[in-house]
């Protein structure tokens, strides 16, 4: 379908991700597609981030609204080279720029979904009592808020990736290759994305005091070390 990428109707065409259309965009309308994906990531993830931070303070909403799109863009760029190398090695005949665009598209779809879920998330945030002497960090209400927000992110990420599976399958002429490539990209992006998220904490609430863009104390350690250490303490 030949709809301009600046046209608001394009969102629906983009989300349908028809294989032939996506292939045409990736090969012939790259700059427009990049512009649209960046806009989708900034608006979608920015809105969702703002909703996450809004629970603790308006300033935290601003910070989280900036940081969430940053996480996605840094992950895309950080893994761009690796993703571009893995694709041909796993059997998909695609160039670096094409791979980068496909990954950017999966994130853009995920961010549009997140943007659409923002009102629901805001409703949950609105209904969660603030941290007082009655409600604390270990309260079920706070746990429910964290879980819901994380669940939405996970759901959007999975749908964003699965949406482009048919495109990759048609591109590779083989569903098996498409699955392998998508899985490799997914694992790589999850691995790096988790660490970037860890470094850019806090998103919802800063237990160490008033909102900061990135607390100096957060720039140490890694997500996986912390998980491993927690498991070690539990088991041994």
């Amino acid at each position: 379908m030949n709809v301009s990428l600046i046209n608001p109707r394009f969102v629906s065409v983009f989300l349908r991700a028809d294989a032939a259309t996506v292939y045409e965009w990736i090969n012939h309308r790259q700059s427009q597609l990049i512009g649209f994906c960046l806009a989708a990531i900034i608006v979608g993830a920015g809105t969702y981030g703002a909703v996450m931070g809004f629970w603790s303070a308006p300033l935290q909403a601003l910070y989280a609204g900036i940081k969430l799109p940053l996480v996605i863009l840094l992950t895309t760029l950080g893994n761009g080279l690796l993703n571009g190398m893995l694709a041909p090695l796993l059997g998909l005949n695609a160039g670096f720029r094409q791979c980068l665009l496909v990954v950017l598209m999966t994130f853009a779809i995920a961010c549009i979904i997140l943007g659409a879920l923002s009102p629901v998330a805001l409703f949950v945030v609105w209904n969660t009592p603030p941290l007082t002497s009655g409600t604390h960090a270990t309260s079920p209400e706070y746990g429910f808020l964290q879980l819901t927000l994380a669940l939405f992110v996970g759901y959007a990420g999975i749908v964003g990736n699965l949406r482009l599976l048919p495109v990759l399958a048609q591109w590779a002429s083989n569903l098996h290759i498409a699955r392998r490539v998508l899985l490799a990209w997914l694992v790589g992006n999850l691995f790096l994305g988790s660490q970037i998220c860890w470094l850019l904490r806090p998103f919802i609430w800063d237990p160490d005091g008033p909102p900061q863009f990135i607390g100096r104390q957060y720039l140490h350690g890694s997500f996986y070390e912390t998980v491993f250490e927690a498991m070690r303490r539990l088991i041994f």
Partner: peptide, 10 residues
């Protein structure tokens, strides 16, 4: 890039 990020934070 991934290795560098981890080496700066851990």
């Amino acid at each position: 890039p991934v290795a560098w990020l981890f080496s700066q934070s851990t």
